[in-house]
């Protein structure tokens, strides 16, 4: 694909600023509008820019980690924040909170709800990445379709492409059973 330098650069700039915004949503969420979902979804929106610029390869370059791992990791963090309090004798998902006075920033509050939100963020991010893997991987789609045209990978499935014609299926089954008898 031909790529324009201008588009490329501007997309990268926009991409990173949106990513920063998404992180802001994530960390500010406990006190202002935002949170893991909105953050993750915003990051997803950033990805769509990269996709527009360079297809799925560009998306992969932006996030070298496998989407599997991101999603699994997010879920793992989420579940761990849920379970760990049980191990220390508290209720499921019971959060602890710390407050500290730091000179410049004033009172900083941190709760264990944050890792939970991070888990949410990662899952949403991973989901969006996966969607582009699933529907946006044009080369692989072409390859699969090509294969089905050639009749190897998908041959069996394409046989039933005309499911609506019941008689045909019936005939197929009969022919198959006859073949098996031979």
């Amino acid at each position: 694909m031909k790529r324009l330098l201008v588009v490329d650069t501007s997309v990268r700039v926009v991409f990173h600023s949106i990513l920063v915004l998404s992180l802001y949503f994530l960390f500010a969420g406990h006190n202002q509008p935002g949170g893991g979902f909105v953050g993750g979804l915003t990051a997803g929106a950033a990805i769509s820019f990269r996709y527009v610029a360079g297809g799925v390869a560009e998306v992969r370059r932006a996030f070298p980690l496998r989407p599997w791992t991101i999603m699994g990791g997010g879920l793992l963090i989420g579940v761990l924040t849920a379970i760990l309090p049980i191990l220390s004798g508290n209720a499921l998902l019971e959060h602890a909170a710390w407050e500290a006075d730091i000179a410049i920033l004033g009172t900083v509050k941190a709760t264990s709800a944050l890792p939970f939100d991070i888990g949410v963020y990662l899952v949403v991010l991973g989901l969006i990445l996966m969607m582009f893997e699933a529907f946006g991987d044009d080369e692989a789609i072409d390859e699969a379709v090509g294969a089905s045209v050639r009749g190897d990978a998908l041959e069996a499935d394409s046989v039933v492409s005309d499911l609506f014609e019941l008689e045909q299926i019936r005939e197929l089954q009969l022919r198959r059973s006859r073949r098996d008898q031979l």
Binding site: M131, L154, S158, S161, D162, L163, F164, L166, I169, R170
Partner: peptide
């Protein structure tokens, strides 16, 4: 909904369309 989209996508791969067909066995 995303999953449903994927089903439609797969249906397109298989049948070149996204029509929800009737159940064959039931029709028989």
């Amino acid at each position: 909904t995303l999953f449903l989209l994927a089903l439609g996508f797969r249906s397109w791969q298989l049948t070149n369309d996204d029509v929800v067909e009737d159940d064959v066995e039931d029709r028989f």
